[in-house]
Every structure is written in structure tokens, then in C-alpha cells.
Computed example of a mutant assay.
Amino acid sequence: MADITDIKSIVYTEKTLGLQEEGVVVVQTSPRMTKTGLKEVFREYFGVIPTRINSLNQSGKTKRFRGVMGKQNDYKKFYVKLPEGAAIESMAV
């Protein structure tokens, strides 16, 4: 069962701000989140039922920190299309 704690953040970049004008929200989540789970979270916590959800798995980058190789965490990114005129509270930029 997915809940709001699986959502890590809403992504705010130059590209995603352009998408938000078209009603698409980009959400970064834990890798275990599914499309149906994310749809339930949006319906329950934001009161919006998404019209379309696209997902992609993002591998963590390999980085060097003080000479030691390490890896950032993997995450899943969702592109959530909201219905016409709908918005979520944290989208107000």
C-alpha cells in the first residue's frame, strides 16, 4: 500500500516548470512506488485524480567522495498529467 511518505519531492527545474504550465507534475518517489499507488496518493491526499501517469526508473549516479567511490540512491520519477484546471497545493511557485 502506497502512502504520502513514498513521495520524496516534486521536481522543480526549468523543464518541469514548463510542463507544469501544461498541467504535468513531475514527482520523485521511492523505487517501490507503482502507478496505481501514486494515483491513490493523489486522490487521497491532494483530491485530484490524474488523467495520465508515465514513469521511469532513474539509477543513482556514481560519485567520488574523499577518494572513495560511492553511489547515490536509485529513485523513480513520475510524470503526472492533471485534469484541466486542477492543481495541487505545493505547486504554487
Rank of each mutant, 00 (worst) to 15 (best):
M1I: 15
A2V: 00
A2N: 03
D3Y: 04
D3H: 02
D3E: 03
T5Q: 06
T5C: 03
I7F: 01
I7P: 01
K8T: 12
I10K: 07
I10T: 07
Y12W: 13
T13Y: 07
E14M: 10
K15G: 13
G18C: 00
G18V: 00
Q20P: 02
E21M: 02
E21Q: 11
E21V: 07
E22N: 01
E22L: 00
G23P: 13
V24I: 14
V25I: 14
T29M: 15
T29L: 15
M33C: 07
M33Y: 11
T34Q: 02
K35I: 07
T36P: 06
T36L: 11
K39Q: 10
V41M: 12
F42L: 12
F42Y: 11
R43P: 01
E44L: 06
E44D: 09
F46K: 04
G47M: 15
I49A: 08
P50M: 09
T51N: 07
N54L: 14
N54G: 12
N57A: 15
S59N: 13
G60H: 13
K61N: 04
F65T: 01
F65G: 00
M69T: 14
G70F: 00
G70I: 00
G70K: 01
K71W: 02
K71S: 06
K71E: 03
Q72V: 11
N73S: 08
Y75H: 13
K77R: 06
Y79P: 11
V80F: 01
K81I: 02
K81F: 02
L82H: 02
P83N: 05
P83Y: 04
E84M: 01
A86P: 01
E89C: 06
M91C: 01
V93I: 11
V93Y: 09
